[in-house]
């Protein structure tokens, strides 16, 4: 009986893994094929003679590296600001009694539910008037707006879990409200902070609609938008292998970040679970 379920589980597991990872493996394999091989019509699964030409070509491509820098800069700044604001706001929501608390929370949720596309038009006009079109802040601001609600909700849930006494103990021990917040509350809410940070970073990193609508040059265009401009010399024969290579390169930081933060989240959870 036990053996049977074991085998069943493993088969199911394998199927799901193949289902999820096959496209990824396909892209990775594409990225090692030469241009000639991909334009041949029906290329085989594994590259015939693996080459790193695509990688060197794409890293030499000034537009791509520029977009990569934009992506990193915009995503990191948006994440940082979003987490800072969300931490402060969530703390206030979890700890303070003030009028309109419910409204703030439901408004935040409403914003998160708003379809991004419907804002593209108004934002485009506003950003042109304000001179934010095709700039980093022009993307950072909307990214923050769309990620803050979720971050606030996640974090306020974490803050509510932390017993009031923690903070009161810190105050009796001689801490100011700010010190109590920084030295006791924030470390305890670390798993929440990292969760919020990851969500925000992914949103900003992968976002496409705003990135393509609110930019016009590589001055602020991010990688997802830039990749749609990878058409190559022949419009009927897009450089599939190079597109695949770009995709692989864009995915690497995401994987690294997940692995890094995942460890933090686990560490945070184990220490936060103890309520003294």
């Amino acid at each position: 009986m036990k053996q049977k379920t074991g085998i069943g589980t493993w088969i199911g597991f394998a199927l799901i893994m193949i289902w999820c990872l096959l496209p990824v493996v396909w892209i990775i394999s594409l990225s090692f094929k030469s241009l000639a091989e991909t334009t041949a019509g029906s290329p085989q699964f594994l590259p015939k003679d693996p080459t790193l030409d695509n990688y060197s070509a794409i890293l030499d491509n000034g537009d791509f590296t520029r977009a990569l820098i934009n992506s990193f800069g915009i995503s990191l700044i948006a994440t940082l600001l979003s987490v800072i604001f969300a931490t402060l706001a969530a703390y206030a929501i979890a700890r303070l009694e003030f009028k309109g608390k419910r409204i703030v929370l439901s408004m935040a949720l409403a914003i998160a539910m708003f379809p991004v596309v419907s804002l593209v038009g108004p934002l485009f006009d506003m950003w042109r008037t304000l001179g934010l079109f095709n700039t980093w802040p022009g993307l950072i601001i909307p990214y923050m707006t769309f990620t803050l609600p979720l971050a606030i909700w996640t974090l306020s849930a974490f803050f509510r879990e932390i017993p009031w006494e923690m903070e009161q103990a810190a105050q009796v021990d001689g801490a100011t409200s700010w010190q109590a917040f920084r030295k006791v509350i924030v470390p305890l809410a670390a798993p929440g902070v990292f969760t919020a940070a990851i969500l925000t970073f992914f949103f900003a990193w992968n976002e496409f609609v705003l990135a393509i609508s609110l930019t016009s040059t590589t001055r602020s265009r991010t990688v997802p938008a830039q990749m749609s401009f990878f058409v190559g010399p022949d419009p009927f024969n897009p450089p599939y292998s190079q597109l695949a290579t770009a995709s692989v390169i864009v995915t690497i930081p995401v994987i690294i970040i997940v692995l890094l933060f995942q460890r933090k989240i686990v560490a945070g959870l184990t220490s936060g679970a103890v309520k003294g």
Partner: peptide, 8 residues
């Protein structure tokens, strides 16, 4: 009452 130790 619940000691309020800092778990981290």
């Amino acid at each position: 009452q619940n000691y309020a130790l800092y778990p981290h």
